[in-house]
Amino acid sequence: MRALISIDYTNDFVATDGALTTGSAGQAIEKPLAEVTKMFTENEDFVVYAIDRHEQNDPYHPENGLFPPHNIAGTTGRNLYGELAEVYEESREKATVYWIDKRHYSAFSGTDLDIRLRERGITEVHLVGVCTDICVLHTAVDAYNLGYKIVIHKNAVASFDPVGHEWALNHFKQTLGAEIIE
């Protein structure tokens, strides 16, 4: 059994005026990411929206010194971007669609994602979203450590760092044994 984990495809990470935007690289994957998500949803596969959530002025969050404030609870920056927002709205009431608020890079860190996957008998996770070399990477590493088969949709991941993006794609394949598909 398989699941799709859609990571952080929000206005703050993708829109031109987003607080921590991938810009044109993130915008270029909008259609393939939405198509993959729609396909998984229509096939009744488990689809997880793993979305970064931060609180305004949280002095304890480790990202404070690394990045500008982003994906703040209650702001439009945290809303899903473009076509993915439409795909989510059309399917959010389905039992096979699940939203996770995440506080750290990995969708597994501090969430019930592993439990949700295991109770459904899922052994293979497909990853899409941003940033390839941060949240997608950390989710993939945790998935590997938990024994999941990993599939990365190359045309549906992006980063604001082209070098980091390419490095992560190679790392997925060479170090985590992930399958990379177009």
Rank of each mutant, 00 (worst) to 15 (best):
R2N: 04
I5C: 09
S6I: 08
D8Q: 06
T16D: 14
D17Q: 13
G18L: 09
G18R: 07
A19R: 15
G26C: 10
Q27C: 07
E35K: 11
V36Y: 10
M39G: 12
F40K: 05
E44R: 12
F46C: 08
Q56C: 04
P62N: 01
P62C: 01
N64S: 03
G65F: 00
L66N: 06
L66K: 12
H70T: 02
N71M: 05
A73F: 08
G74H: 03
T75N: 05
T75H: 09
R78N: 00
L80C: 03
Y81S: 01
G82R: 00
A85Y: 01
E86S: 12
S91H: 15
E93V: 08
K94E: 06
K94M: 08
Y98C: 08
D112T: 15
L113S: 10
R116C: 09
R116G: 01
L117G: 09
E119L: 14
R120I: 03
T123D: 02
V125I: 15
L127T: 06
H138A: 12
T139R: 04
A140K: 01
V141I: 14
D142G: 02
G147H: 01
G147K: 01
N155S: 14
S159W: 04
G164T: 05
H165T: 08
W167Q: 10
A168I: 11
L169N: 07
K173C: 03
Q174Y: 12
